[in-house]
């Protein structure tokens, strides 16, 4: 069972969100998600300046197995994307909670974060996933 950093919030669809300075929220996929997907081979990210909406698809990650939509955990404007993933999508497999981040959103409505799961609740969710 992988260690889940305590400062993260999660969606049931396995995206993580980390609140950083000035209301910015960094987004990635969980270690559990990358394990389910297998080797990542392609990432389609939003552009800086794009508006994303909580719960709406805004990116795609593709593994050797399948393509998966990434849903924004919060609404707002994209202020940074992880361009290094274009050439090294496997970074997500290697470091899902660190260098494998996807994009940063300047959150328009920080209250949306309250709807996300805490690390313990997420750990419980994926444990149940594994029957």
């Amino acid at each position: 069972m992988s260690d889940i950093p305590g400062d993260l919030k999660f969606q049931k669809s396995h995206e993580w969100a980390r609140v950083e300075d000035a209301g910015q929220v960094r987004v990635g996929i969980s270690d559990h998600a990358q394990e389910l997907l297998g080797d990542l081979v392609y990432v389609e990210l939003p552009k800086v300046g794009d508006k994303v909406e909580a719960g709406a698809s805004c990116a795609v990650v593709e593994s050797v197995k399948a393509a998966s939509d990434i849903y924004a955990p919060v609404s707002g404007e994209v202020v940074a994307v992880n361009g290094a993933l274009a050439d090294k999508p496997e970074t997500i497999n290697e470091d899902a909670y660190g260098d494998g981040w996807l994009f940063v959103v300047k959150a328009g409505n920080p209250d949306e974060l309250d709807a996300l799961l805490g690390p313990d609740d997420y750990a419980e969710l994926i444990e149940n996933d594994e029957h």
Binding site: G38, D39, K65
Partner: peptide, 8 residues
């Protein structure tokens, strides 16, 4: 078996 860790 689909893979044993890494398909690639």
């Amino acid at each position: 078996p689909l893979h044993y860790g890494s398909q690639i």
